[in-house]
């Protein structure tokens, strides 16, 4: 730990315990004060490799080896675009080839091998798979959101559980105190044999302890229920994203209504107009027409009703049915 030192000002952790090393995309470390000094203007070049850097891109070094930081950085950047999943490939071999390819790219970039070539390869890949990348990005974003929610929920449940435990302990204590008091009371005021009383109370407290134990296992199931509950919650959340599918019944097909006349055929629509039936009707007013009424509807209805059932003959078997 102590040999951690800023490569520029040579300050070590030993001399300055509050030393904070920062790294940027190039993978070279600098201490916080050096960053403040060098990047006063917001941007500048790395003192070791002369790569132009921005101050806002500096972050605290997490790993001892700054090269690892660089790799992590690059990996993050590369995987943003190389975000294919196993489902996107037809065979496992293809997927493995792809993974290896990704690793090669990362390795090359980290160790400055064929940087230009590799960057070109990335650009090419981006162009070829633009749609798929976008799609997977959205998917990943959604999954992350779900995960966050999940964590939030777990935290909440944890809190509840903790509270319960505290409460239980308190109660237990209270009970014990009460038992003791009871025992003392009994010993003070009772005329019975002291040994017997002590024994009795011991038995009672034992039974109570047993009861507690038997009731304890009920707590873990509740917890597991929660954890399964999370799973349910998650699936239900996922299903909430889907638009519910409404099952369509069979398509409606128009069927000409069958008219039972039981009498002579009434005139058809065209005959109402041409057969001069309509002449004998009061023509509809403008207001009536606006409401959808026309005289020939009423004319047709009257004629149909006049003709329907003219052949009606009550035969004995019809009468019996009612």
């Amino acid at each position: 730990m102590d040999d951690q030192a800023c490569p520029r000002c040579k300050t070590t952790k030993y001399r300055n315990p509050s030393l904070k090393l920062m790294v940027n995309v190039c993978g070279h470390a600098l201490c916080e004060s050096c960053v403040d000094l060098l990047f006063l203007k917001g941007s500048g070049s790395c003192p070791e490799c002369d790569v132009p850097l921005r101050r806002s891109n500096f972050r605290v070094q997490l790993f001892e080896d700054p090269a690892v930081e660089k790799e992590v950085d690059i990996r993050k950047r590369v995987l943003k675009d190389f975000n294919k999943k196993e489902e996107d490939f037809s065979s496992l071999n293809e997927y493995n080839d792809y993974l290896e390819n990704v690793e090669t790219i990362i390795f090359n970039l980290t160790n400055n091998i064929d940087v230009m070539e590799t960057n070109k390869r990335i650009e090419q890949y981006k162009r070829d798979n633009r749609e798929l990348i976008l799609k997977n990005k959205i998917k990943i974003g959604r999954e992350e959101l779900e995960l966050e929610e999940l964590l939030e929920e777990e935290k909440h449940i944890d809190q509840i559980r903790k509270k319960e435990i505290v409460k239980e302990e308190l109660e237990l204590k209270r009970k014990k105190i009460k038992e003791k008091e009871d025992l003392i009371d009994e010993l003070m005021f009772s005329n019975q044999d002291a040994k017997k009383i002590v024994n009795e109370f011991a038995q009672i407290s034992q039974a109570a302890a047993k009861e507690m134990e038997s009731s304890k296992p009920t707590a873990p199931p509740r917890a597991s229920q929660f954890s399964t509950g999370i799973k349910f919650g998650r699936t239900s959340q996922q299903s909430a994203y889907h638009i519910p599918i409404i099952e369509d019944g069979p398509l409606y097909t128009y069927k000409e209504p069958e008219i039972v006349v039981d009498g002579p055929e009434p005139p058809v629509w065209s005959e109402i107009e041409t057969g001069r039936y309509i002449v004998h009707m009061r023509p509809e007013t403008v207001e009536e027409r606006a409401g959808g009424y026309t005289a020939n509807i009423a004319c047709m209805r009257a004629l149909q009703e006049a003709f329907m059932g003219l052949y009606h003959v009550s035969r004995p078997e019809q009468g019996q049915s009612s």
Partner: peptide, 19 residues
């Protein structure tokens, strides 16, 4: 329509004897 109505089905009788 009378021929398909409940009137014909349930309330038409054969003759006065049935009534």
């Amino acid at each position: 329509m009378f021929p398909t109505s409940t009137q014909k089905k349930h309330w038409m009788f054969t003759d006065e004897l049935e009534l």
